[in-house]
Design a protein around this nucleic acid. Structure first.
Lengths: 338, 338
DNA sequence: CTGAAAGCGCTTACAG
DNA sequence: CTGAAAGCGCTTACAG
């Protein structure tokens, strides 16, 4: 079926060098001394033929594939792309490959594939980034208790408490944002929140409500369009507010666009804030006040925890990590109009 | 080192079912008939213990890993994220895994890793997306002649003519854009181009110059900041123009921002166009006139070509693909001011 | 400093 | 419809 020339095997290198495969293997691994002359001869052959040991055979003996997996809802999304980049960087630094798999909103068939990969040892461990819908499959839940080599990135999951996780300090970030807006004199605020089931959404709402206990909350799906449409609803219902908290920047930007179409000025008539600090946040006019999350670092740390556990031989004793966030003041927040 | 419980082997399933591993293997593969009762018994055991055949052992025999690789400069970038998503979708539809690797601007050490993966058969094939710098390593060049199972996505490379590629019709897209702007009466245009070495940049410049033969061209790095700074330079040098062609949307948006700061109105004073149609293009004010590329489809088709070649056992006879683009007229282009 | 041999967990002719 | 056995390409005790 495949007529590509088969690459050289260790056996062939050994024959060409007039030694045993044992010696070639040890020349490669350095796990026992090899006579310099012999080593030189072998290394010449290796270079000459571009020999590389077969990954599968190696794994069959060692039991480790040197590959970790990353499950994300959508790799093409800015947010998950940053996480992926971080995971990939860390994996690379530790000489591991990265298998990426879109869960595309928790298609259970797809998810099953990743856990199977884990079981077939195609991957040694998994960084799992919760989909928007957040209902872990039974499979995941059952693995969580093992404890399997799985780390949750970006989002904690109730049912998966046994697993280490890396998340932002959503609560305190939102609290700072709330205080900032409150300090500008605002009292009537609305929250364009994320999926109600997400930990991060719950935390951010709690943070905001510390300053705005009665803020009206409506839920969107984190996309620009969603912010736009929810703002349309608020306007249609003649809801009164002077400040808008969106649970991410995209929804904030969608809302801003709708306000602009309505002839409402930001921040003169309405203050708007987001969460994340995406690229776009500094490009829209005026620049968006928001909270910066370090998604790259979330990815890096998640991979780190996983690789640490793998190296230790067990996830036992691997703790979770909370990463700080940073308030970024730009042009969309201003004193309340009187 | 690793004290996770070892999963069941086929041998153990066979013993528990009172049959040989041969029969278990055939029950799994369906490559020869198995008595229904026997099959039932085996399948029960398999389900019960969540048995999955070891990927490495399987590959050792079959010679195929069922995993393809994707090399991109930066997975967290919108542009490459879309490609990755497409590749992943197609791989998934063909029951293949996807190993992602950032080339991070052609770090030669990293690139070497991917070609090694190819050689160790950790991956069966590679979708290669050219970095911005575009100087393929000798390694890649030597593989291109094999022909190795490699497909170029998004960008053609001179030295790698032997490899199949999937790209947009950059020339005709830029030509349409040029004609559109020309038809609005503009005669003085500048081009904020991409890296001079990229095929796509060359093609787009050619397309624009069909309508604006004398357009001044300066080169940027495709980022927002770059468009902003190049526009600053043009302004500082008091270059006269009424239209700006940017080789991608990000640079167009950066340029718009700088024009806005300068008090120049778009499109009343200056018309601006981009290329790509990124999310942001429809969100900025006014909406950006651009050319839509289907990056997802570029990813999908690239993977398709690769998988086709893999299935056929050879890349011999796998052709290249050119995907159409679409002119998207929004608010940044208008009649030339008189 | 080196080698013969067992074995990792599968697949697949070969034989019945 | 089923099984014994060879072998994929390595690693690693064991022996010298």
């Amino acid at each position: 079926m495949n007529d590509r020339p088969r690459p050289w095997t260790m056996q062939q290198i050994a024959e060409a060098a007039g030694v045993s495969v044992t010696t070639v293997s040890h020349t490669l691994s350095g796990k026992r001394p090899v006579h310099p002359d012999t080593a030189l001869r072998i290394n010449r052959l290796i270079d000459e033929h571009g020999y590389v040991p077969d990954a599968g055979a190696r794994r069959l003996k060692s039991g480790r594939s040197q590959v970790i997996g990353l499950a994300v809802p959508d790799i093409s999304h800015w947010y998950f792309g940053r996480i992926a980049r971080g995971v990939e960087e860390m994996a690379n630094e530790h000489d591991h490959g990265l298998i990426i798999a879109s869960t595309s909103n928790s298609d259970p068939r797809r998810e099953k594939r990743y856990f199977n990969m884990l079981r077939t040892r195609a991957i040694d461990g998994l960084v799992y980034t919760a989909s928007r819908e957040i209902k872990p499959t039974d499979e995941l839940v059952s693995m969580a208790s093992s404890p399997a080599p799985i780390v949750l990135a970006d989002e904690d999951i109730e049912e998966l408490e046994g697993l280490p996780s890396v998340t932002s300090t959503n609560y305190s970030g939102a609290r700072d944002l709330g205080r900032h807006v409150r300090s500008l004199g605002h009292t009537k605020a609305v929250i364009i929140a994320g999926f109600p089931g997400l930990h991060s959404t719950v935390q951010r709402m709690r943070g905001i409500r510390e300053s705005f206990p009665n803020a009206l909350a409506i839920h969107g799906d984190f996309e620009i369009r969603s912010g736009y449409e929810l703002m349309s609803d608020l306007i249609a219902h003649e809801v009164k507010f002077t400040a808008v908290f969106a649970c991410n920047d995209f929804m904030a930007i969608g809302a801003m666009r709708r306000l602009w179409e309505e002839g409402l000025r930001v921040p003169e008539d309405v203050s708007v804030v987001g969460f994340d600090d995406v690229d776009m946040a500094s490009v829209v006019t005026p620049g968006l006040t928001t909270v910066r999350q370090d998604m790259l670092e979330i990815g890096r740390q998640s991979a780190k925890l996983l690789l640490d556990g793998l190296a230790a031989g067990s996830m036992e004793g691997i703790g979770s990590v909370r990463l700080p966030v940073e308030l970024v003041l730009r042009g969309t927040t201003g004193p309340v109009a009187d």
